[in-house]
């Protein structure tokens, strides 16, 4: 029983990180129809920003703030410089543009910093565990779950209450008509990118807290997982991206915990097989709607 709850907490914590990343991807996709390959590099950027901030002796809290701010600004800059000029081009052009942005960032990280991992020392008080109702829960897990929950609640309020938030949901359904409401297209797209950067930044901090180091390809694996989560939840659905992130994490964590040792090497294949089965049953994704496919 205790192991079950432990694993549940682990899955919730990992799922939160996937959910934040997937939500950022889905936000940009729902507004622009662009799958942003460079999303993972925003995470990596957070890592390097923190590495240099700590190196400069700024301390962990400030490093976290700087790391997240860096990802947010970089996402907005990315849209301004790379994606805005090709916004009206076809999907393949935008896809290739994002691939180019991603490649350029990899090269810069590798050549200007290093191909080898750079350590980001995790403060000692974060290593331990706290006692929650007789269970030892890792501090990092607890922080990660709390941060995810707070961020998701804040975003949900923004998307439901503010005019810009409603406009973003409207733009996901019908961009031209949203412009007919007098909503500035650039503002909606820039906000989508800014929020996706913010989410990637927070996910980057959570990821780093678990790993303790940053390398040029740090963002690749988690964002690959987030892609899967987005498709699993229903491409273009924000709620779907969050659900997909958690479902994927639960599958992964529980397979890792309860598969017989001999099967463990096939963990990833089994995970992906399960995802494919889910998609065969519900091709529109867990939350996606058929009528949204235009």
């Amino acid at each position: 029983m205790e192991i079950l709850i432990q694993q549940f907490v682990n899955a919730l914590s990992l799922g939160g990180t996937y959910a934040l990343l997937a939500l950022g991807l889905a936000m940009v996709f729902s507004v622009l129809g662009l799958i942003n390959f460079a999303h993972g590099d925003l995470m990596t950027l957070t890592g390097y920003a923190m590495f240099f901030a700590i190196g400069a002796g700024l301390g962990m809290p400030l490093a976290v703030v700087l790391g997240i701010a860096c990802a947010t600004l970089a996402a907005v800059a990315m849209e301004r410089v790379a994606f805005r000029p090709v916004r009206d081009a076809n999907t393949a052009t935008m896809l290739l543009t994002s691939l180019a942005v991603s490649t350029i960032l990899h090269m810069l990280f590798q050549n200007l910093i290093s191909a080898r991992p750079r350590a980001i020392p995790v403060p000692s008080w974060m290593i331990g565990a706290v006692d929650v109702g007789g269970l030892a829960i890792g501090v990092i897990q607890l922080m990660s779950i709390t941060a995810t929950a707070l961020l998701l609640i804040a975003l949900s309020i923004f998307l439901r209450r503010s005019t810009l938030g409603i406009a973003m949901r409207a733009a996901a359904l019908d961009f031209p008509v949203t412009r007919l409401m007098g909503i500035n297209a650039n503002a909606v797209v820039a906000t989508a990118f800014g929020l996706s950067g913010l989410l990637a930044g927070v996910a980057g901090v959570l990821w780093l807290a678990q790993r303790g180091s940053v390398d040029p390809l740090m963002g690749f694996l988690p964002v690959l997982k987030a892609f899967i989560a987005v498709v699993l939840g229903g491409l273009g659905s924000l709620a779907g991206a969050v659900v997909g992130g958690f479902v994927l994490a639960f599958i992964e964590v529980f397979l890792r915990a309860f598969l017989p040792d001999g099967w463990l090497p096939f963990r990833e294949s089994i995970t992906l097989t399960l995802v494919i089965v889910l998609l065969l049953v519900r091709p529109e994704g867990l939350i996606g709607q058929r009528e949204n496919v235009r």
């Binding site: 005019t163 409603i166 406009a167 949901r169 409207a170 359904l173 409401m181 007098g182």
Partner: peptide, 18 residues
Amino acid sequence: RVFANLTVRENLAIGGAT
């Protein structure tokens, strides 16, 4: 072309965004 997944209230709110 109403925003199908938005409520009537939200559709009107965004219409008055300007």
